[in-house]
Structures are given as C-alpha cells and as structure tokens.
C-alpha cells in the first residue's frame, strides 16, 4: 500500500512522513509512505505497475490549488486525492494524517 505525500519540493512533507512512519508501526505496518515533489506526482498516478502506483495521494495545504486537477487525474485510476488539514500539517501530526490516509483508502 503506497501513501504518497506531495508538496512543492517534497522537503517539508518529508518531515511529516517520518512521523507517519512511526505511527504506522502500530496502525498499519504494511503501509509504504513517501514524500514526492509536485513535478513528479503524475508518475505515481500514471504508472501501470501496482507496486509503484499510489493508493492515496495527500497534498500539502500550500499546493491545494492542485487538488481539482489531481483529483480528476486520480479518479480515472481510482486513487483518492485529498488535502492534508493545515493544523495537522503545521503541528506535524503524523498519526492523524495517517488515520486520514487510511480512511480514504477504504
């Protein structure tokens, strides 16, 4: 299961990824959580390889203007796309964001 976090350069979300991984040890050990740059996100939607394709995409609130178009791209492949709530993003609340991601996949 691939949880893909996306922000401008993939830098600030990588902070959150670390916290999410810690939370995932209990909640969802099989989750593979990564942070990617906005310019690379299409690859995780387009690819036909199930191992590489995102199962859920979470956008940093600072690029929420991408939501509409990415949601459209994601829907075609059945990938849910959502914006990370800015409070959880700011406080780097890994557990809450992971819970949200898992609830979107189901």
């Amino acid at each position: 299961m691939n949880i893909v976090l996306c922000c401008a350069a993939g830098m600030s979300t990588s902070l959150l990824v670390e916290r999410m991984k810690t939370a995932a040890k209990e909640l969802s050990p099989e989750a593979n959580i990564i942070a990617v740059a906005e310019s690379e996100i299409l690859q995780y939607i387009e690819t036909d390889d199930r191992n590489d394709r995102a199962d859920v995409i979470m956008l940093g609130p600072q690029i929420r203007y991408k939501l509409k178009s990415l949601k459209h791209e994601g829907e075609a492949k059945g990938i849910p796309v959502e914006v990370i709530p800015s409070v959880d993003y700011g406080m780097i609340n890994g557990k809450k964001v992971l819970e949200l991601a898992l609830s979107l996949i189901k």
Partner: peptide, 16 residues
C-alpha cells in the same frame, strides 16, 4: 532544526 535548513511549513501552518 528544519528552519536552519530553510524549511518553515511547521511555523507557517502551525503558529500559524
């Protein structure tokens, strides 16, 4: 620590 490397989303969204 992130701020030293010029990453400030935690302050922008956290303070906010």
């Amino acid at each position: 620590p992130a701020g030293i490397f010029n990453i400030n989303e935690p302050v922008i969204f956290g303070l906010p």
